[in-house]
Write a protein that binds this DNA or RNA. Structure first.
Lengths: 253, 253
DNA sequence: CCTAACTGAGTACGCTGTACGAGGTAACTG
DNA sequence: CAGTTACCTCGTACAGCGTACTCAGTTAGG
């Protein structure tokens, strides 16, 4: 089972920025627009949250709003920019709580907030951001994250790297968990059932001889793994390791 | 700029396994097949490596092989299963070097090998695997990874978690780097140019007041960042943190 | 009022994966 | 050897996608 990812051309990044900061010139003549950018984005978010990013097509959003497909292009330059705005909007919903304590407590809280965000908007996991659209939501999130590691002896570049590391970790961890849950929902086969179903076939192939560790560990994990409990556990394990790693760096100074 | 990822239904996982282990019954009657599964997979890999997963359509692969589109369905049940086999094939190309030294040296080598694999087959970054097709390549890779952390005092479940942590880290790190390079290639705008282009706009919005850390660190990173040099550096930084984290866990015992 | 500006939406193009079925070929069977 | 059966190839078709183009209808400024 797998997901495949595709490039989705985001048009002019400048257009995304105009949308995000509300910099479009207001029209003076002509009929009142029936919609607003916010309404389009809200409808798109509703669909993506409920049915995934694949279901969020231009035609589908237009149907949701009761207008023709091409009407949306009056409000949004294209699908790419729409996703940009959706992303910034989702980022903007982060609580960004002020947490007492040291950097570790703060960074731990940041990781958990981001995790919650991904669980609420799983489609975000499918939108990869190298140069994110610098909207208000993205900026506030970045600022909040940097605040957690500010003044603890890291250089600017290291601060950015540390924050990126935590973000990357959470992204990967939640994606695994969400995918696993998705697979179970769509296939109706639990992890245990899946392992049990494949054990005989793998035995036939002779994997216990060729791949002794893989079959031992795989079988153990397959038997002991309880998706909801252990996805939490796995998250904790990895996050602790990542934060330990940053702590080691700090103590070495 | 962003990439969007979509679910790609992989048909019957059982069919993927049959393909991967060559378990299909050989036909006795009828004309000789003009192609083989291997040839189809090789052509698909060629296209995906060179032009990305989005370009790897059934029709495109068929063209590459000089046959009609529907001919491919004689060899592969569908696109999902084809990607499964491509993935296992790519995993199977890993060198899986035996490295002298302790677990850290071995795990470090594993991480670097996986990194090379992703750089050679960037489309792998777009294929998310929750329940990977358990072909020979996947099994050998898993076995090799577990070998690095075997006998150092981790439970089976912890071994799996540690290996997953490293895999997740490398995946995230390489993806960021590849995306960044891709954005530069397609847009023709370097990171520095991008930051410089956006600085005035962000100043206008007042980000230096609202987002003091983000604008300071962002500007520093934007100015100091040299893509090829610093993507290596960022990888080293994160990998060291992750391995430090595992080391801390081990020392605590 | 007239006209320029603007909104809404139908149609169409090229792309996707793949279901269906027709027509050709090779080997086993009587 | 003829008949049958299994198999290979591939043209056509369908539903879906993003979106370019075009034209009719609406509104406000001069």
């Amino acid at each position: 089972m797998h997901m495949s990812q595709e490039y989705s051309g985001s048009g002019d990044p400048a257009k995304s920025l105009e949308l995000l900061w509300g910099l479009q010139a207001k029209p003076t003549r002509g009929p009142k627009p029936a919609l607003t950018v916010d309404k389009v984005v809200a409808a798109a978010l509703r669909i993506a949250d409920a049915e995934g990013l694949a279901a969020m097509s231009i035609r589908r959003v237009a149907d949701e709003l009761g207008v023709g497909a091409m009407t949306l292009y009056r409000y949004v330059p294209g699908k790419g920019e729409l996703i940009d705005v959706m992303l910034d909007t989702a980022y903007g919903e982060l609580p960004l709580r002020e947490v007492p304590g040291d950097w570790r407590a703060k960074l731990d809280a940041v990781a958990r907030e981001i995790r919650e965000m991904y669980l609420k908007h799983p489609w975000l996991l499918q939108v990869a951001v190298s140069r994110p659209p610098l909207g208000p939501g993205v900026m506030a999130k970045y600022e909040h994250e940097l605040h957690a590691v500010n003044g603890i002896g890291l250089s600017d570049v290291e601060m950015d790297a540390a924050v990126a590391l935590v973000n990357g970790y959470v992204h990967g961890a939640v994606r695994s968990a969400v995918e696993a849950a998705q697979v179970i929902r769509t296939s109706g086969i639990s992890d245990k059932e899946w392992w049990l179903a494949h054990e005989p076939l793998l035995d036939k192939i002779g994997d216990t001889k060729k791949y002794p560790l893989a079959s031992r560990v795989g079988t153990t994990v397959g038997h002991e793994f309880d998706a909801p409990y252990d996805s939490d556990h796995g998250f904790e394990f990895g996050l602790a390791r990542v934060l330990d790693g940053i702590a080691t760096l700090l103590h070495g100074r």
